[in-house]
Design a binder for these strands. Sequence first.
DNA 1: GCCAACGTTGGC
DNA 2: GCCAACGTTGGC
Length: 153
Amino acid sequence: MNHWLFKSEPDEYSIDDLKAEPRRTGRWDGIRNYQARNFLRDKVAVGDGVLFYHSACKIPAVVGAAKVVRAAYPDPAQFDPESKYFDPKATRDKPRWFCVDIQWQSQFAHPVPLKVIKQDPALEEMVLVRQGRLSIQPVTEQEWRRIEKLGNG
DNA sequence: GCCAACGTTGGC
DNA sequence: GCCAACGTTGGC
C-alpha cells in the first residue's frame, strides 16, 4: 500500500465536503497537471492512504485522511463542453485526464500546518517541502506516521 | 494579486 | 529538436 498527499482548495472542495458525500466517497477530478496526472493514472491504487491537504487558503495544512476506493478512470469533465475542466484535445479513445474516488477516513484533532511541516526535521524530505506546486504527491510511510502523530497528538 | 517552479506547446 | 511562450499551481 502506498501513501499520498492530495491538495484541494477548501473553497472548492474541502474535507467536510468529502465527508458530506454519500458513503463519504467523492470523485477526485479536475487534475490538469501532468506530473499529478501521471501519479494518479499510474501509481494510485485502491486501498492507498491519502492525506487531505487544504491549499490556497489562510492556513495551508493537512487536515485529515482518506483512502482510495476506485483506481484511475477517465475524468468525465474533460469531455463536457460546459465544464471548466473541458479539454477539446481529449477524446473518449484517448482521454488525457484521469480521476480516482476516495473515501473520507478521519479528521485530525489538530490540522498540521505547512509551516509546522517545514520546521520539522523528520519531514524535511517531503515532496510538499521540496517541490511546492504538485497537487498529487507520494508520501513515505514514515512521513505518514509523523503527520498522523502531529495531527492526533 | 504577484510571481516562481515546473511541464507542455508550438514556431522556426 | 531548440527554446521562448504559455498554463497551472499555490505560498506569500
